[in-house]
Amino acid sequence: MITYVRHVRSALTPEEVAEVALVDGIATRLRSAMADRRQELALAHVHGASSSAIQTLVSEILRAELAFDEEVVLRPEDQFVTQARPDFFYDLGGGRGILAEVERGGTTTNNHDLKDLWKAHLAPNAHHLFLIVPQSNWKPDGSAREKPFPIVARRLGSFFGNPRREIDVVSLHVYGY
């Protein structure tokens, strides 16, 4: 099963409401495509497997089915020297877009989820984030070592729903494989 949580800023302009509807449609298509390939994802997500195995499967969906580009260097924000390079980027037009990041082992232990949100926050042409994370990471004996999906959904959700805490990312879509 592919789990999913969506967070959206509390106050949106009419243009952002329309944009979120478009992004929600893409998000639904991604979730459906991942659900169709959940067995392949489960077989690739085992203890000791390469992160690239998951990224390759998700890449096939994002690139072939949803027209995302892979590893596009985003425009640096004035005064920032970062050259953010997300795993995937979808251009919505008008200088707006969706970042998609695929995580595995370091999702919460190395704070990759927070780094991905930071990347979306700083990139002037990224306004939505699709974050694809494991529901569980495994020990050698096959038992769960940690459960990144609920942690990510909760802690990144804290940046939405209250204007005082919100950043400029319009929507966050977290997928658990």
Rank of each mutant, 00 (worst) to 15 (best):
Y4W: 07
V5E: 14
V8M: 03
V8Y: 06
V8F: 05
R9W: 01
S10I: 00
A11W: 04
P14K: 07
E15Q: 15
V17F: 12
A18Q: 15
A18M: 12
E19R: 14
E19Q: 15
A21V: 09
L22P: 00
D24A: 11
G25V: 05
I26T: 09
I26A: 02
A27F: 03
S32A: 10
A33N: 12
A35Q: 10
D36N: 07
R37D: 06
Q39N: 11
L41V: 10
H45W: 12
V46N: 08
A49S: 15
A49Y: 06
S50H: 09
S52E: 10
I54V: 14
T56G: 05
S59Q: 10
E60P: 06
L62C: 04
L62M: 05
L62R: 02
L62N: 04
A67F: 15
A67E: 14
E70L: 03
L74T: 00
P76S: 11
P76F: 05
E77C: 02
Q79W: 14
Q79T: 14
V81C: 04
V81F: 11
V81H: 10
T82E: 10
F88C: 00
G93K: 07
G95L: 08
G97E: 02
G97K: 04
I98V: 15
L99M: 08
A100D: 02
R104A: 05
R104Y: 06
T107Q: 10
N110E: 12
N111E: 14
H112P: 03
L117Q: 04
A123M: 01
P124I: 05
P124V: 07
L129K: 02
F130W: 03
F130K: 03
Q135T: 15
N137D: 15
W138L: 15
K139C: 06
S143Y: 04
S143E: 07
A144I: 09
E146K: 13
E146A: 15
P148E: 11
R154H: 14
R154M: 09
R155Y: 15
F160G: 02
G161K: 03
G161Q: 07
N162A: 12
E166C: 06
D168R: 12
V169M: 06
V170H: 05
H173S: 11
G176E: 02
